[in-house]
Amino acid sequence: MSGRPIFTRPARLAAIAPYLWMALFFLVPFGFVIKIALSQTAVAQPPYIPVFDLTAGWAALKASFAALAAENFRLIASDDLYLSSYLRSLGVAAVSTSLLLIIGYPIAYAMARLPRGWQPVAMMLVIIPFWTSFLIRIYAWINILQHDGLLNQMLLTLHFVSKPVVWLSTDTAMYIGIVYSYLPFMVLPLYATLAKLPASLTEAAADLGASPLRAFWSVTFPLSLPGIGAGVLLCFIPIVGEFVIPDLLAGSDSLMIGQTLWLEFFTNRDWPVASAIAVVLLALLLIPLLIYERVQRRQLEGRR
């Protein structure tokens, strides 16, 4: 082998471009967030100290660095408010993701079984709601779920209930909203995985004596695990940080961490604590990502 580089210059540039992007638009802003999380609140503009002033010279910068402290993280750890918010977020995300999986899997499975020509149509139907603003769709749900809304009218007409049910400002409404909004994120990766599975695999299972149900659990389901993993991650992570849906549809007696963060940031104007909340949230969400990454890598290595 000669010592020539494997990649040409443009190819190398293309290879590092995503990292540049990550560094510029994720790592640098995240650095700011960490810095603010380590600062103290102040009645000032911006509302925290110390402020790094590059023009003030090296000594001032060093003094500013020394002033950073982990005080806000200690506060988060000591106050039950934050802990319960985190737990509620994880709980809501876990329940929602389970519901999404239970509802999304049959939809994706049915889509993958449609005649080839109909599959793009089904895909369009799943994606079409995205053409309307997310906020408008949540407001539409408020309309549907309110006291004299569509849902109650329907239930009354069909005599399922004798008086209107309270939907709004309940966890039920929030779960309806979350499941509705995130369904495509569960269905699409599942569909992509299931559609790729050759029909001959289930036929081979049937040929070897497996009933349709047995063939599903022994062959289709294990082979769709990568799709399940992707769908679960795509839903779970953003749902943990969800703010709008619980704020508009759920009651106000217990808050998700996104709502707590919002309160700290806008109502209390406590940027450092809000930033600390965000940093802890990110650290929490890295755990499932790392697990997923490890499982995937092990699978890839098993292939070799």
Binding site: P198, S200, E203, A204, A206, L208, P222
Partner: peptide
């Protein structure tokens, strides 16, 4: 008689081995 109940087995053109 359904496929999974036939005393007949098939070797598929692309083998259709279970990858997992």
């Amino acid at each position: 008689v359904l496929p999974h109940q036939r005393p007949v087995n098939m070797m598929f053109q692309n083998y259709a081995l279970f990858p997992h």
